[in-house]
Amino acid sequence: MGIEVKNLKKSFDNKTIIDDISFKVDDGRILSIVGFSGSGKSTVLKLISGLLEKDSGEIITSGGDVAMVFQYSALFDSLNVFDNISFALQERKDLRNKYTRKELEKIVAEKLELVGLSGIEEKFPSELSGGMQKRVSFARAIVTEPKIILYDEPTAGLDPISSTLIEDYIVRLKNETNAASIVVTHQMSTIRRTSDSVLMLYNGKVVFEGTPDELCLENTDYTKQFVNATIDGPMKMN
């Protein structure tokens, strides 16, 4: 059943950031969340992953782990790629001591293969390019076989070709794990290449929900403004 969010609300210091949001993502589906900087996209992901406490509403998941890929990869810079990827298996209370070193090496090699980076176990994050760091952080996120994967702007700051590569890996991980995925993005290309549906947020509310095609075709003020990237429109930067 993936993940279902009902009437989610969250405010910081009396300022409502998420105001009554509901949506649903099934297993093996990818939802994109778009919206202005500051519209609360990262906050939604943090609420789902449990990094933030919700004020009210419901977040129903089918159980299992929630994985999150961070906007700037957030790799542990004092650990090498091997320790980064196997971090949860080595340190988590219920998983540590479960695997031998040999098994860990096998799992890490598998995950690295999945993101197309075989053989870089001994490297440190600072020795990798931004795109490679992103992919290593994908591998780290899926190491516990999560049922839900959250991506926070996975293609931000990458060139178009690396972006396409990353987008393909997002789809590949979905196929491999059959997880429900949520991708926060600003890029139309990412939405088109990866997503089954799109959610647009503005001022903490959902202003559009539909497929990527509908986003382009639908003629509401919000979608027109987003697709054409115009300053004039209902959404105001402040």
């Binding site: 929630v66 542990f76 949860a88 988590r92 209370k93 780290r140």
Partner: peptide, 21 residues
């Protein structure tokens, strides 16, 4: 630095207690 680069959040999401670790 780990906190502001979200590495601590990454530890928490991987269900490891950052204080203990």
């Amino acid at each position: 630095t780990m906190k502001v680069t979200e590495q601590i959040d990454a530890i928490s999401v991987l269900k490891v207690n950052p204080v203990h670790y």
